[in-house]
Design a protein around this nucleic acid. Structure first.
Lengths: 343, 343
DNA sequence: TTGAAAGCGCTAACAG
DNA sequence: CTGTTAGCGCTTTCAA
């Protein structure tokens, strides 16, 4: 629960209030409020006096009080597993930017791929009565789900597509991505596969799709490495080095992210393995370099900014009651495989 | 536990309040408040009743109300220029994590390297009466400075070191970094320099240090390219391609970030230029790959997480009044040049 | 150990 | 167009 209690406030100078401004302006407090929030409801003269008084006092409204009275916080809770992954950073940027433009601010929580962490963050955040909530993924603790439903606040879940969303949903199917990658590589004539994958839930979905695609063609991965998050470049490189040291032989490496793929490629190049002829490497993401690096990395392109943009836009509509459809929204953003060279 | 109470209003829309909990528990609202925030001030029996009532009602405190009464928001404002740059992402992560642990939440603002944007964000954020503020850099608009001083809230400026900080300061000298890089390359026998640098203020400081170091040795850069932020991989690559196409000849390329350096290296490799023998490339950052990529990239290592950690810790101390020194704090984190190969 | 009263700073609902 | 009257939900005196 929230611990509001703390040591005495460290002597913060009391900021001027609406009443101070009203006194200086020689009008009533409510007129100041209106001059600030509904200027058209106030005479030019009064507005001028208020503006001058605001200027003079250096008044900044206290939104804690305003929100309490209004029952609207103009605050949106955003929880992502990480910002270290550039693709999530892009989502965060798109969301904060879009919300900011619409007059909302973003309370950021980083869950580290942990449901418990998410639950704790959510509890703390819900105490601030956000007007909207953006979450990553469909998986949440039972307590979280209960609280979210009770909050009766617009919610958008992102980065996935699946059953039983809490409210709106913006994402794509990770399983389908993995499966498409498997088929793609098979079609390109690859036969012996290694996989280097992060151990988070969505990466696992992609991996499952990938291995299923192989199974259907009678193939199985030679070796699979699951790496603890965060999926860093160096870990990808190291994982592939270990696989090679163990003597595995493959003509294609599936990676759950571009970052890991980059690491794999680096190790391959280090050992003089010819990419893409002797070895195909495929990643996932939208890293700038994935589309511009040496023509050897094939990648599933996902637009993190697009996800954020769509999520934020939907939320804004829902929060302002402009939402036309009362039914849960479900947006499939899809994906595409970007090929920089014949794999 | 008499359940003889009659049914409250059937309206389900509103979240339960302290008063609802008090009714269910059969105590006064203030006792509920105390049971939650100062449990030791309440009898075991009362506390048990309250706990049960909280459970039953699914009560979550309304922090807007609490903060208004307490004059303490447990909110910290954080403004960074971008999260797309992994080094800032690390700082953001370290800060939110550290603050979260101490019971504070983070209101994130992304300024896009614009003072005006920062000012707008700051205005919006200050309305929420944050208990502390973390900013990037020392440069702020005059209005921002005035407001920040008036807010009389603990502030930490990060990622730089210089004159006239608003309050505390955690960073390092960008000019010194650039100068050290210049000297380093000269010492390694490099003589003809190109520079690819982002056009933000701190990158400019580094660039100035770099060119000064060269001047002192009687050298000047062959060519300098200033790139608009954000400094993406692809732009670095393209910039270097353009320089080469223009016929410039150099044996070292200074880059304001690892991301740009990575782009430059990629183009160099693409054109068959031998790194590091024919060309030295040096970047700046702490990207994981900078320390593990092919042994060709020399980089100035800066620990983004360390900056965030120190900033957050200082702020927490200041906010809880634990701060021993009333004087402005100034922490120089320094830097080091990481060499992966003989440049 | 508990409670009653009085705000925190702002705004919705009515008057005027 | 402007002001008055009540709160928003919680916490702070100050009593009991």
């Amino acid at each position: 629960m929230s611990q509001n209690r703390q040591d005495p406030p460290p002597g913060r100078a009391k900021a001027p209030t609406l009443i101070d401004v009203a006194k200086v302006a020689g009008v009533s407090p409510i007129t100041v409020s209106r001059a600030l929030n509904q200027p058209e409801m106030v005479s030019d003269k009064a507005r001028a006096k208020v503006t001058a008084a605001v200027e003079k006092t250096g008044y900044l409204p206290n939104m804690l009080a305003g929100s309490l009275a209004t029952q609207t916080s103009r605050l949106v809770a955003l929880i992502v597993p990480t910002v270290a992954n550039p693709i999530f950073a892009e989502t965060v940027r798109a969301i904060t930017e879009t919300l900011e433009r619409a007059g909302y601010q973003t309370l950021l929580g980083i869950s580290g791929y942990s449901d418990q962490q998410e639950q704790d963050l959510l509890e703390a955040i819900l105490c601030r009565r956000p007007d909207g909530i953006i979450l990553t993924g469909l998986q949440h603790s039972e307590i979280s789900r209960t609280r979210l439903k009770a909050a009766a606040t617009p919610i958008v879940e992102t980065w996935d597509l699946g059953e039983d969303p809490l409210d709106a949903l913006v994402g794509f199917s990770h399983y389908d991505v993995g499966r498409a990658v498997g088929r793609y590589l098979l079609e390109k004539g690859r036969r012996r596969f290694a996989a280097v994958s992060a151990d988070d839930r969505r990466a696992d979905s992609r991996l499952a799709g990938f291995t299923d695609a192989l199974s259907e063609a009678g193939a199985t991965p030679v070796a699979t490495r699951r790496l603890a998050t965060p999926a860093k470049f160096s870990r990808g490189r190291q994982a592939f080095a270990e696989l090679l040291d163990e003597g595995i032989e493959c003509d294609a490496v599936y990676c759950s992210s571009d970052t890991l793929a980059h690491g794999v490629m680096t190790e391959a190049r280090y050992r003089g393995i010819d990419i893409p002829h002797r070895l195909a490497v495929i990643g996932f993401g939208d890293l700038d370099f994935a589309a511009h690096t040496l023509p050897t990395l094939t990648s599933v392109q996902i637009n993190g900014a697009e996800i954020g943009l769509r999520a934020a836009r939907h939320l804004i509509a829902a929060m302002s009651g402009t939402s036309t459809s009362p039914d849960p929204v479900r947006i499939d953003l899809g994906f595409s495989i970007i090929e920089r060279d014949s794999a």
